[in-house]
Every structure is written in structure tokens, then in C-alpha cells.
Design a protein around this nucleic acid. Structure first.
Lengths: 186, 186
DNA sequence: ACCTGAACACCGTTCAAGT
DNA sequence: ACCTGAACACCGTTCAAGT
């Protein structure tokens, strides 16, 4: 009696739910299958094993983060843009730690969906810096450095746990980046 | 016939070996036990399950990273110190990706070995900035921001894979930090 | 085409039993 | 005190069988 039908979008929704409610380490074919009311082996029709499941979550998590910071960047001008986007980045990490951790998943190839999703994420930062007056190449460098720095802070915070003075510490990081990325002739 | 004796230092050595040769995900009681010539259940005498094994690796990996960057910082003056320590940080990540990944493990409590190991790591950066003339509190902030930024870059590089222009990109990050952390009155 | 159910390998954990 | 070996739960994966 095969009455339950699995769709890829339903599977994705459930997978994200598992990651958020039970943590990234709880993501498994079993946990997703049980929530879908289906046997683990049934998922092989839609996904290439656990690896495929993790990949699916990684792509969606990265897109969700990108959506959040892109939304935050809209209509915010000049020097304030980096601050705003930075806060949105950290908010995603703290509110969706499971998805944020999934963000670090390795792409399968140099031209797959996950690589594209990561490029899109960095491009939001690049657009912010371009709007601040940086030339295209410089904006790209600034974007990658910024993403690296923000990721590092949030990854450490999510892993090690948040403490009281983290707000001020994050502010210091954002200020450091802003000052360090100012165009200077020397 | 219990002829094989397990020591905690031997166990640690083997665990690090597994992490380096087979990757962090291959770290398990089984893999370590088989290399020790012992049954998995025998490890429970020395370590508190897989969690305890991961914790052991995390503490040692963090200490190894600290040793590396501390060594690199010796006898290097002024503005060059950050560059040197930064290069040593990345070298550890690229040469020992398994240990580097283990560096992100969550401490058990606020006053355990792993928390201490992490504090020691950040303190190396603090000492570098103090030597550059920053006041103690400022040096601490700079140290944490720097560690976050370097960790983020290396974590992304280790996860996503190294590509050709990463050297220049890392140099840009180090330069950004150096400029951004310069004491300015404004 | 898609799901079930059995089967197998593998890992973590506990515990009685040996030395 | 420390290791073995059996036992159990759990997950991933494959595949024949059903619909």
C-alpha cells in the first residue's frame, strides 16, 4: 500500500525542519523518512543517499542566507550598508544555526548548484561595495574578505556558544572591515 | 588474552593520525580501535565514547595550531608579525585540514581544557597586537576579530577547495585587517 | 515510476565475563 | 584495572517484490 507520495520540495522542507529543530547532525535519511511517513529506502528515488540529502540542504540553506542579506541590503545607502548586511548575516547564523552550518558544505563540482549559490552569496557583498564606490575587481576582493570574516565569527559563535560581549566584538569586526576596506593610496 | 595495552597518549596519537589520513569524518571508535589492535569497547576505559574522542582530538588540534602560530610569531617585529602569524595559521589549515576542522568543536563547559586551548590561541594574536603598540583591551578585540577572520577564510578554503587566486585573496584579507586595526582617532 | 520489506554491513554502547 | 565478546539499537544501502 504505497499511499504516501514524496515530492522533492516536500522532502526539502522536511529536511530543513529536521536541521533546524534537531540540529545538522540529526540530518539523516531515517529522520527525514520518518517525518515523511515513509521508509528510508524510499528516499533513494529522489535523492542520492545521505550525501545527496546533505547537498540538498546545503544549497537551500545558502540560498536562504543570500535572500536574507539581499533583503537587508535593499534601500540602505553608503557606509551603513555593510553594517546592515553584516547584522543580517549574523542574525541568520544565530536564528538558523543548523542551516548556517550546512552553508559550509563542499560543492560537487566547479559549476554545480552549490557553487552557484555560494557565488550569489558573495555577489551581494560585492554589490554593496560597488555601491560604496569601489571598482569591480576591488569590490570582489572586498566581498570575499568580508564573507570570510563574517563567516568565521559566526561559525565560532554558533559552535562555541554566544556570550555577553559578542555584540560589541562583532561590531568591532564590522568596524575593522569598514576601515580596512576604505580606498587608500599607499 | 589482553595483551595490548592502550595509553591515553597512544590513543591521542592514533586519533590524530586517523583525522589527518582519513579525514575528520572518519574519526570513530572503530577506526581508532582497529589501528590500536583493540576492540572498540576497550576504548571506553580511556575515553567517554565518541564524544570524548572528538573532544580529545579538538583539544590537541587547537594546541597544535597554537604552537605553530606561536613559533611563527617569535622574533618577528612590528607590522610583519600579523602577516607571518596569518600565513602560519593558513598553513596549518591547508596542511592539517582534519585537525583544523576539529578546531571548531564546542567546549563542554566555560572552564574546561578546550575553552582554555581556545583562549590560548587567541592570546597569541593579542600578544602580537600588544607588541604592535595596542593597549590591552584593544589588543584583545583585535585578536578575536583577527582569529575570526582567519578562521573563516581557512574554513571556507578547506571546505570548498583551494583555487589559484586564493593566495592573493588571503593577502587582501590580511592587508584589510592590518589597515582596519590601525589605531585611529575618529 | 515509486514504495515496501528483507537483508547486509557498519558503528556506538552496555555489560557480564575473563585476566 | 583493563580488555574481550556477545548483545542490542540504529543508520545507510541494495534489491527483489509489489502497486
Amino acid at each position: 500500500m504505497a499511499r504516501t507520495r514524496v515530492t522533492i520540495s516536500g522532502l526539502t522542507t522536511i529536511a530543513i525542519t529536521v536541521v533546524e529543530k534537531q540540529g545538522l547532525d540529526a540530518l539523516s535519511l531515517s529522520s527525514v523518512a520518518s517525518r515523511l511517513g515513509v521508509r528510508p529506502s524510499a528516499l533513494y528515488t529522489h535523492v542520492n543517499g545521505v550525501e545527496g540529502l546533505r547537498y540538498l540542504v546545503a544549497v537551500n540553506a545558502t540560498r536562504n542566507l543570500t535572500d536574507d542579506i539581499r533583503r537587508a541590503a535593499i534601500g540602505v545607502g553608503g557606509g551603513k550598508a555593510l553594517q546592515t548586511v553584516g547584522q543580517a548575516y549574523r542574525a541568520f547564523a544565530l536564528n538558523s544555526p543548523g542551516q548556517f552550518r550546512a552553508t559550509l558544505t563542499a560543492p560537487r563540482s566547479a559549476d554545480d548548484e552549490l557553487t552557484k549559490a555560494n557565488d550569489d552569496l558573495v555577489e551581494v557583498f560585492a554589490l554593496v561595495f560597488a555601491a560604496m564606490g569601489l571598482e569591480a575587481e576591488t569590490a570582489k576582493l572586498a566581498a570575499r574578505s568580508t564573507r570570510s570574516a563574517l563567516h568565521g565569527f559566526c561559525a565560532l559563535e554558533v559552535a562555541m556558544g554566544t556570550s555577553a560581549d559578542h555584540d560589541a566584538q562583532y561590531q568591532h569586526l564590522l568596524d575593522t572591515l569598514e576601515q580596512g576596506l576604505q580606498p587608500t593610496k599607499d
